[in-house]
């Protein structure tokens, strides 16, 4: 099997997961209690109005008809209309998604930089002060829930110290300066040419991103440390030292790349929990992302929107894991060779 065949096969696997996901989401969204048409129209609407609305939305049809319509919609990108906002669900998601992606991207960058960096540091000073300090830090970050950490950050930096904004993506005074181009505030502020607004956007994203990434930092730190120590005991590392290669080269090139394999796998899994945790963090920091939209959709029985949000998260998760798989093949040739049968 060639490597491209392996990729095609993995892609087919991705498709199968997505189809499975769509079925589960459909089932779950129809199980939600209450009459969605009644909830959407409110208690004052007459029964005739509710029935007309239901017929309009197609929710008076038998379940299997609904499923066919739903699948047609999914394949054409038409997720239907939100019962709550009366917008196309796809448009709503496209408007809310960038804020969430931005938050998660910054959070995962923190996780990678701080987690791997501190992990290497701890491994290099095994059982020293730095190692002990990072161990404490890891315990703390893994055991404190992200949303609680978020509230703590708001209290400390927003209230007592008063140096950080605690909600939103940007301060009021910059809101008019920034024209929406991409929906990513950090990029839009730069496109608008306002460095002050850009800095302000960073100040806003820092606390939620830190709160979101804390647990991951702890995990990645510990995994990096233990795999680094593990790899340093390998014969090939001793051999490289024996051939007189400089110490930093042995550590940062020859050891680190080996240690990346488990770290990368964990990072892929972490991404999923980041998406989940982001919902809580977004609520705490009043971050106008997918969470706000998704939570409202669930509470108001807006199942088209629920399906859209969950599907988006599912696609993101499956895609990230696919990318991680491809990256693993790049980092460790053994994985690639094994899977493509070239060994």
């Amino acid at each position: 099997m060639q490597y491209w065949q392996y990729i095609v096969r993995r892609l087919l696997g991705v498709l199968v997961s997505l189809v499975g996901l769509s079925i589960i989401i459909f089932a779950v969204s129809r199980i939600l209690p209450g009459n969605p048409a009644r909830m959407a129209l409110g208690p004052l609407a007459t029964d005739e109005q509710v029935e007309a609305f239901a017929a309009d939305m197609g929710i008076d049809q038998p379940v299997w008809m609904q499923y066919i319509q739903y699948m047609q919609g999914l394949l054409t990108g038409d997720l239907g209309m939100s019962l709550e906002t009366r917008n196309q669900v796809l448009d709503d998601i496209i408007r809310h998604l960038p804020a969430t992606i931005e938050l998660i991207t910054v959070a995962i960058s923190f996780t990678i930089v701080l987690g791997i960096g501190l992990g290497i540091l701890a491994a290099q000073h095994k059982d020293g002060h730095i190692d002990n300090a990072t161990r404490m830090l890891a315990f703390a970050t893994v055991s404190i829930p992200g949303f609680f950490l978020g509230i703590l950050f708001q209290l400390i930096f927003g209230w007592f110290l008063g140096i950080m904004p605690i909600t939103g993506r940007i301060s009021r005074e910059f809101r008019d300066e920034v024209t929406r181009e991409t929906g990513f505030m950090l990029i839009d502020t730069l496109l608008s040419g306002s460095l002050a607004a850009h800095f302000d956007a960073w100040m806003h994203i820092l606390l939620p991103a830190l709160a979101l990434s804390a647990a991951g930092i702890g995990q990645i730190m510990r995994i990096t440390r233990s795999t680094m120590i593990d790899v340093q005991r390998k014969d090939y590392i001793e051999a490289e030292r024996g051939f007189g290669l400089p110490n930093w080269l042995v550590v940062y090139k020859y050891t680190l790349k080996n240690a990346f394999v488990p770290v990368l796998t964990i990072l892929g899994l972490l991404y999923a929990s980041l998406l989940g945790n982001a919902f809580l963090i977004e609520l705490v920091f009043n971050w106008p992302g997918l969470a706000e939209y998704g939570v409202n959709a669930v509470l108001s029985n807006d199942f088209n929107a629920v399906v859209g949000v969950v599907m988006t998260i599912g696609i993101a998760f499956v895609t990230v894991n696919f990318v991680v798989d491809l990256l693993l093949g790049r980092v460790d040739p053994r994985i690639q060779l094994e899977r493509s049968g070239l060994t």
């Binding site: 090939y236 051999a239 040739p333």
Partner: peptide
């Protein structure tokens, strides 16, 4: 001074 290591299969770095 250079050294030839014992186990050839495990003395080469697998990811380079």
């Amino acid at each position: 001074m250079s050294m030839i290591f014992q186990d050839p299969m495990s003395s080469l770095n697998p990811v380079f």
